[in-house]
Computed example of a mutant assay.
Amino acid sequence: MAQDEKRIALLIDADNAPAGKIDAILTEVARYGVANVRRAYGDWKNPHIKGWEATLHAYAIRPVQQFAYSRGKNASDMAMVIDAMDLLYARNLDGFAIVSSDADFTPLVMRLLTDGVKVYGFGENKTPEPFVNACSKFTYVEALGQPENAGATTATHPRSASELRSDARLLQMLRGAVDSTSNEEGWSPLGAVGQQISNQASFDPRNHGYRKLSDLIEATSLFDVRRDEQIIWVREKPKAHATAKAKRTPRKRPAIQTS
């Protein structure tokens, strides 16, 4: 392993993750580092997770048996949390990849982040927002697995311009990132915009149906995009900027004249 490669612990909640997406998940994790720890947690006598059995050996994932000691309680969650904290205290990892659609892992993610490690989350579209937003980056598994030559779209259906513009949180994040990284002419390098967004929130354009951030920004129809050799520049369109500013500025009431 190269000295500068990041070391990632891949922890899978087999009860709440689809086995059919593991190849795409590992490919994604490889973008951030080497998954030198690979563990999947569950009660392997439960037929519900039988689909994982063939996957474990093929991808060198160690199964961790966790019996359901109490009805209605997920003992696998507790086992994952204990292992994650043991791995954190060992101080030989740079990040964690947690595969689950269960919001119960949100406190764990927040705890890991306080130690300065990255947490990459993977789960289905049904994953509750607290877990999604807590991660350094969260990717819906439905958005993974599209061939590289398939253009800008992903397995998640691309959201239309009107759908994107109706997402207040998304627009606030995009506008804020462009504004904070812009030069005197209002242009921002796309790389700086992406870095600003990743610093403030969990974000992946594929969750909105677009493979690249530039494709997503263009799809909103609210930004000008300019390609200058190897650099992509982004600027909010003057009309859109003026409209947004007008909405934020309260209208002054006319003065009442007295005789």
Rank of each mutant, 00 (worst) to 15 (best):
S188I: 05
G72I: 12
E163I: 07
K237E: 12
N16S: 09
I25C: 04
V99K: 01
S101I: 01
K137G: 06
K247C: 15
W233K: 12
A30C: 02
N207T: 08
Y69V: 05
N125R: 15
Y210V: 04
M78P: 07
L87S: 01
A246G: 11
A134N: 15
S160Q: 11
P128T: 06
R159F: 07
F203P: 01
I82R: 09
S188T: 07
R91T: 08
N125P: 08
L144Y: 03
P250R: 13
V141N: 03
P107E: 13
T154H: 08
E163S: 06
D224L: 10
L112N: 08
F223S: 07
D104H: 01
D215T: 08
L26C: 10
L213F: 05
G194V: 00
R248N: 13
N46G: 11
G33M: 02
G116F: 13
L164H: 00
V64M: 12
L213M: 12
L170F: 11
L11P: 00
N133Y: 14
G191L: 03
M78D: 15
I49M: 07
W44V: 12
Q66W: 05
N92H: 11
G51R: 04
L11D: 03
E148C: 09
M78A: 15
A103S: 14
R165P: 02
T127E: 03
F96A: 03
H208N: 05
P205T: 01
N16D: 04
S198D: 10
S166G: 11
V234S: 11
K45I: 10
V109R: 04
L112W: 07
A14W: 00
W187S: 05
S166E: 15
A242C: 03
K50F: 13
I217T: 05
E129F: 12
D43H: 14
K6D: 09
L213T: 07
G145I: 13
V34F: 10
A242L: 12
K50M: 13
A192D: 14
V234P: 04
D115N: 13
S188H: 00
F223P: 04
A150I: 12
A68S: 12
G191Y: 00
I12W: 01
V178P: 04
R91Q: 11
A14Y: 02
H157Y: 09
P254Q: 06
G116H: 10
R62A: 10
G116E: 05
P189D: 00
A242T: 08
D102M: 04
D102G: 02
T249R: 08
I8F: 03
Q196S: 14
R248K: 07
A68H: 15
P147D: 09
P189Q: 00
D77K: 10
R253I: 07
T127W: 00
S101Y: 00
Q257H: 10
V29L: 03
N74H: 11
Y120P: 03
V109E: 06
D224T: 11
I231D: 14
D115C: 13
A90V: 05
P189H: 03
E185R: 15
E142A: 15
N74P: 15
P158V: 06
L88E: 04
R62L: 13
A255S: 08
A40N: 01
N36K: 09
R175Y: 11
T220I: 10
V225A: 14
K126E: 09
F67N: 10
W52L: 02
D215I: 12
E229T: 05
Q172P: 00
Q172H: 11
I49D: 03
Y120E: 05
N149D: 12
E5P: 08
M110W: 09
G51D: 13
G33D: 04
A177V: 10
K73Y: 14
M78L: 14
